[in-house]
Computed example of a mutant assay.
Amino acid sequence: MQSGSSESASPRTERVQSLSTPDTRGKHRIQAELKRLEQEARFLEEELEQLEKMEKASAASKEMLSKVESRPDPLLSV
């Protein structure tokens, strides 16, 4: 009878041990997701910096329009 009671205690011990051991696969997934989000945040910060350095669209459009208008169209006969 003691062997029966020791067997019933063993699964409990295993269950408690399995709950106390960390889930390394879950931890790895969380770390990978965190790393991906950090990379995305860095990418977006770099993109924002580039946008801040660019001229306003209207100023760039006016400059391009003046350059295009000053050159004759090579496909039209003069």
Results as ranks from 00 to 15, higher is better:
1 M>T: 13
1 M>G: 15
2 Q>F: 14
3 S>H: 12
3 S>M: 15
4 G>K: 12
6 S>K: 09
6 S>E: 12
7 E>P: 00
8 S>C: 02
8 S>A: 14
8 S>D: 11
9 A>M: 14
9 A>G: 01
9 A>N: 08
9 A>D: 11
9 A>H: 07
11 P>I: 09
11 P>N: 02
12 R>D: 08
12 R>N: 08
13 T>F: 06
13 T>L: 14
14 E>L: 07
15 R>D: 10
16 V>K: 03
17 Q>I: 07
18 S>F: 02
18 S>N: 13
19 L>K: 09
19 L>H: 04
20 S>Q: 10
21 T>W: 00
22 P>M: 06
23 D>K: 07
24 T>P: 02
25 R>Q: 10
25 R>T: 08
27 K>N: 03
28 H>W: 01
28 H>E: 10
29 R>L: 13
32 A>N: 04
33 E>G: 05
33 E>S: 14
34 L>Y: 02
35 K>D: 12
35 K>G: 05
37 L>H: 11
37 L>A: 15
37 L>Q: 15
37 L>Y: 03
37 L>D: 11
38 E>G: 04
39 Q>M: 13
39 Q>E: 15
40 E>W: 05
40 E>C: 04
40 E>H: 11
41 A>Q: 09
42 R>A: 12
44 L>G: 01
44 L>M: 10
49 E>R: 14
49 E>D: 15
49 E>V: 09
50 Q>H: 07
51 L>S: 10
51 L>F: 08
52 E>V: 08
54 M>L: 13
55 E>T: 09
56 K>M: 06
56 K>Q: 09
57 A>K: 06
58 S>R: 04
58 S>H: 03
59 A>F: 02
60 A>D: 05
61 S>M: 11
61 S>R: 14
62 K>A: 12
62 K>Y: 01
63 E>V: 05
64 M>C: 05
64 M>R: 12
65 L>M: 10
65 L>H: 04
65 L>A: 14
65 L>I: 10
66 S>P: 00
67 K>I: 10
68 V>T: 06
70 S>E: 11
71 R>V: 10
72 P>D: 04
72 P>R: 09
73 D>A: 04
74 P>A: 03
74 P>L: 01
74 P>W: 01
75 L>C: 01
77 S>Y: 01
77 S>F: 01
